[in-house]
Design a protein around this nucleic acid. Structure first.
Lengths: 342, 342
DNA sequence: CTGTTAGCGCCTTCAC
DNA sequence: GTGAAGGCGCTAACAG
């Protein structure tokens, strides 16, 4: 049975532009134009085409379109994982904005096997996406190189690398540290301690916090550096060590909500009231944290805003052409959430 | 500057099969075969091709491949929303399995605007996906019709429609109701009450629960039906109403964890101990529920397993061709999670 | 096992 | 504003 390769299903030949053109009584190219740039064809032609499309149930083949026009209206998003993810807001906002502008999104999950990540990237590149968004980190250097060579517009979000590939949307960790310090000193806290992960971004926030405190003439800060990954146990151990020392802190600033929860757990087991006896500040504002520990203050990063900014950056690049400056850096800011009763 | 349309970046002409073929000293079709079905070319040719690919950094253009071969290796997934989603496990497992088999996934978010859902579907269909997965519900009837006409293999998951479009992976709500009843009566509960949403699936579970209780000769069950959507307030109101009546229940079975949390809240405000004074059973096992209310029993649906089954069903269909029976129904089952201390 | 031929369905460029 | 030719990069079908 000599069925055409592209045939959709039993017997019915695939509907093409040409079929629609015949029905509408115009040439194929007019159909194409009426669909992609309605403003360049006459009102009359447009209406005939639209009627014919509806009548036939035609659906444009974007593979052919992409092949011929080198515009796929496809954006690939790489993220570590979709489950319980702090990135969900970002992805949601990004996808909404892109869909609104007529772009579809291909999702790539990088969280597991680092060697398979390269295969994933290659497969995705094979679809010739108009843009790629990296949320979190792309693990292998080879992947980053391949991406750079491909010439596809790239936006990195959330995880601020120091040498962005192309565009970048995030926030300043230094600004977070400084703002945290100012906020807390303004509330009257004087004796600070820090529990941070041994992680570049967390350490940058810590350094900045300490610098600001020193600028204000406050006494040295005790810092406990926990080994990655962040765990409750790490937080508990951190507070334990800090309290062993003579000089008891009024507030402990943590580099993540997970560590902060560990600190809270240790505080509870010592019958310290939060925030009266010991205030605790986290980072990230995982939704669960708010439920479980209403007394935990934290820094919220607005994931939704990040997603929107990423979409904006991409769409602008799409319309303005490739001769724009690269390495654009957009700062989305962050929000201090103060849940201390004080 | 007459740059080729498909050009990747400055000056460099896009790399094609032909370029690789020249380097390898074979014909283009041999390159194609070596890449897509390595087993049909000679060892020798394969090695030459692989070397040439590595040397040139060639990335196959799947648009062209899809157009010519009518296999896109693309699967579209529709789901209501990515944020805080109970479906995350399913999507993750599904994507993993598909990626493993060389398929990429296009994500479509249907959760918001029902009219825009149709545009989304059309756009997705334009990419000629090899399969479509519906997680949750596709809202408009028109969309379902279009999908059916398109002839693309479809798997519906989680939300068991009574007339599946094609394949279906889920679990029996009747079985859940019956199993819940049996489990609880076996533990000695006798006076049941139900708080359910006015939702077809929730009501089916409720009916089945009641039928089983009657079969065991237990007295009539009081049912409170709350208007959608599920809220904490709805659960509180439900328990309030149930307790106003003379016959106090020992256990309240809820159609969702959200309602169950409302019931728990109301119970707490009345100083009822859970589960001693009043046991509560939810449905869904949202992860937050477990954290916040360790005493809440619930029914967990194994989202991961569903994702795996969906992938299996699709991949099998892909390999076995379209002349297979449709409307396959796979039951993934569910798990009762008993967190009651009793 | 390998190569040739002929499109896949659309969009570009250029003419009218 | 509209149309005609040509090609995007790949693979199915057949021939060798």
């Amino acid at each position: 049975m000599p069925k055409k390769p592209g045939a959709v299903s039993s017997g019915k030949k695939t509907l093409t532009l040409i079929d629609v053109a015949k029905v509408a009584g115009v040439s194929p190219i007019t159909v194409s134009r009426a669909l992609s740039r309605p403003e360049v064809v006459s009102q009359q032609a447009r209406e005939k085409v639209i009627a014919a499309v509806r009548q036939t149930g035609y659906v444009s083949n974007m593979l052919a379109g992409g092949l011929a026009g080198s515009k796929t209206r496809l954006v690939a998003i790489f993220l570590p994982t979709i489950a319980n993810s702090i990135f969900a807001d970002t992805v949601q906002a990004l996808m909404d904005r892109l869909a609104q502008a007529g772009y579809q999104t291909l999702l790539g999950l990088t969280g597991y096997c680092a060697e398979q990540e390269e295969k994933l990237l290659e497969a995705v590149l094979g679809r010739r996406p108009d843009g790629i968004v990296l949320i979190g980190t792309l693990h292998t250097a080879a992947s980053r190189l391949r991406l750079a060579q491909s010439g596809v517009p790239v936006v990195e979000a959330w995880d601020l690398s120091d040498d962005p590939l192309d565009m970048l949307v995030g926030f300043s960790h230094e600004a977070v540290g400084q703002a945290t310090a100012r906020h807390l000193t303004a509330k009257g806290y004087q004796r600070f301690a820090v529990v941070t992960l041994d992680d570049p971004r967390g350490l940058r926030r810590t350094d900045s916090l300490i610098a600001e405190l020193e600028r204000q003439g406050l006494q040295p800060v005790r810092v406990h550096v926990a080994a990655a990954p962040a765990t409750l146990a790490g937080g508990r151990e951190g507070l334990r060590q800090l309290l062993d020392q003579a000089h008891t802190p009024q507030i402990v600033v943590c580099s993540s909500d997970t560590l902060a929860q560990g600190v809270l757990a240790e505080a509870a087991s010592r019958h310290l009231r939060v925030p009266q006896d010991l205030a605790v500040m986290g980072f990230g504002d995982l939704s669960s944290a708010a439920h479980v520990f209403p007394a935990l203050s934290t820094v919220r990063v607005d994931g939704q805003k990040i997603g929107e900014q990423v979409a904006l950056a991409l769409l602008e690049r799409f319309t303005s052409g490739p001769e724009q400056p690269c390495a654009v850096r957009i700062d989305t800011g962050f929000t201090l959430i103060d849940r201390h009763s004080t």
